[in-house]
Nucleic acid binder design. Sequence first.
DNA 1: ATGATGTCCTGGGCGC
DNA 2: TGCGCCCAGGACATCA
Length: 276
Amino acid sequence: MPELPEVQTVVDGIKPNILRRKVINFKAYTNKLRYPISRSISEKIVGNYVKNIYRRAKYIILDLNNSQSIVVHLGMSGRIIVLKADKDKKLKHTQFIIQFSKDIELQYIDPRKFGLIKVIPSNLLQESKLFVHLGPEPLSRLFNKSYLKKICNNKNTPIKSIIMNQKYVVGIGNIYASESLFLAKITPIKVCNKLTIKELSLLITSIRKVLRKSIQSGGSSISDYAMVNGKLGNYQNELEVYGREGSICREKSCQSKILRIVIAQRSTFYCPVCQK
DNA sequence: ATGATGTCCTGGGCGC
DNA sequence: TGCGCCCAGGACATCA
């Protein structure tokens, strides 16, 4: 499911519900997501209130007043919903619940169990194993053409693999990689050291445009993603190439069909006419 | 060291 | 209706 726009939508959605609320209970319904769920989570978080909520890459971070941070990743199929905690009722595939004061709770729903939850001291987050290899945020100035050019210069990897690699730039997954490359009119198999600085610059602005637009739409609801109130995002209706294999390209006067190929084991969609 | 491949896990959709 | 197969938005470990 969740790439940067979806994670940002979750963060924006839970923020007004739990900011300054106190954690009063933590319950896990599985002992393992991507990693084992530590038994000490409860004692590290219960009784403390939420000071700040933000996103880094595809991680959701809740800073607590005791200098601990709750880190959540949604993996492929993770969702978070905000509920009134009146009935202690777990939904299908809920893997953990965090209860807050004033009867608010977060339920983490994840059928495939590829997500994670970890509590890490706030001041050690950046150097933690989860964060230390992360590249710049795509919406920040650190992600610019000279930076990207340097990365691309001595590699013959397809450009799509570069922009999906969290080491080089974070937040872009399979959907938005295809969408950004379409907007930039660059074919996803193009070897990255063949791209000119101009093309890379256009790719950067395209990535930003696609991500910003999707955030405004509440993300893409494909299969199981929804916003924290259960409403669907809308960006799935805006997708130009992702999931449109065999359909006609939407670019004016282009009659080509959208193709699907596999790059690094992942489905990749593009227009063979518009993208060079 | 880098890039390609396999793997964690479950469910939905399809063809037979 | 049921079974088996393929596919899925992520990210790591492992191997060449």
